[in-house]
Computed example of a mutant assay.
Amino acid sequence: MVKTADSDTVGLKKQWQIFLIALAFFTRIPIPANTPYSTQRLNQANRYFGVVGIIVGAISAAVYLLTLTLFPPEIAIAFAMGCSLLATGAFHEDGLADVFDGFGGGWDVEQKLNIMKDSRLGTYGAAALVMALGIKWLTLAAIAEIDPFLPALLLVVMHTLSRICAASLIFSYPYVRADQTSKVKPLANQQSPQDLWVLIATGLIILLLLPLNAATVLILVLLATRVLCGKWFEHQLGGYTGDCLGATQQLTEIAGYMALLALL
């Protein structure tokens, strides 16, 4: 079948709409109300989760650089982190807290899932959330002491790569069907090889922003963290839920900052 200019235009329009679904799902950024939505398109949207990370990271980096003109780096980092929380509605942080609450307080899979669906924040989740935000702030502040402009670059890099790591779990691990009533529904729970390759390509492009040695170390650390997260979820639940993907994003983001700080 011969491709025409019209079919290419339709294809590009569909991809743009799928990207908008990804943007709406992971951020509070408004999209056109007439954007077509379906479960199939949400599943396809996971290919653009890394691109959403670029946008969130770029917004955070811009806030950091702007605030840096008025305040010390530590304050600028706090503003940048706060901006990312506002941009995403603390979506991933909520997943992290739910995972620690569920895994810390549940005895079996059903109980863990029930705890994770509870909107209330428990002790395990609160502790994990405070530690995660604190470690991120401390690590970025330490990096800023070495180079005050470096956190801006790393915010873009790690917001992107961490979302790619989280989304790639969809390809490797089973979705826990007992999570059907989870409060984070709807959820992308299928990933094609094409979706995965788009994610990988996005990550490789972002890695070009770093020196070769830093990119190599980062790849190894993030792959190891991704595997450990996947095995942890598989052991606890038999697969992943939406909260697990959020927790993976947070944990890989932290691991990336710490690896780069150690390298510096």
Rank of each mutant, 00 (worst) to 15 (best):
L153K: 12
S7I: 14
A255W: 06
Y240W: 13
F103V: 15
I55P: 06
L23G: 06
M81Y: 01
L223S: 09
G256T: 08
G203Y: 03
P73K: 05
L187M: 15
L218H: 12
T39W: 05
I29R: 14
F19D: 01
R41K: 05
W232D: 10
Y257Q: 01
G125E: 09
A132R: 08
D94Q: 05
T160V: 13
F103M: 15
A144I: 00
K185R: 14
L42C: 08
H92G: 06
A255D: 11
W232N: 13
Q180E: 14
K136M: 01
G50M: 11
I143W: 02
V130W: 08
T67H: 00
V130Y: 07
E74R: 12
A224W: 11
D118V: 08
P186D: 02
F79R: 03
G53F: 15
L20R: 04
G238W: 11
G230T: 04
L204D: 04
M131V: 15
V63R: 10
A5C: 00
K13S: 08
T160D: 02
Q40V: 13
L196R: 13
H92S: 09
F149W: 10
P72A: 14
Q44H: 09
L140D: 04
I164K: 06
L129R: 11
L65E: 08
M131C: 15
S192V: 03
T248H: 07
P174C: 12
P36F: 08
A80D: 03
G53E: 14
L251G: 03
L218V: 14
L23M: 12
T225H: 10
V221Q: 06
V130I: 15
V217G: 07
A78C: 04
P73Y: 04
A214P: 00
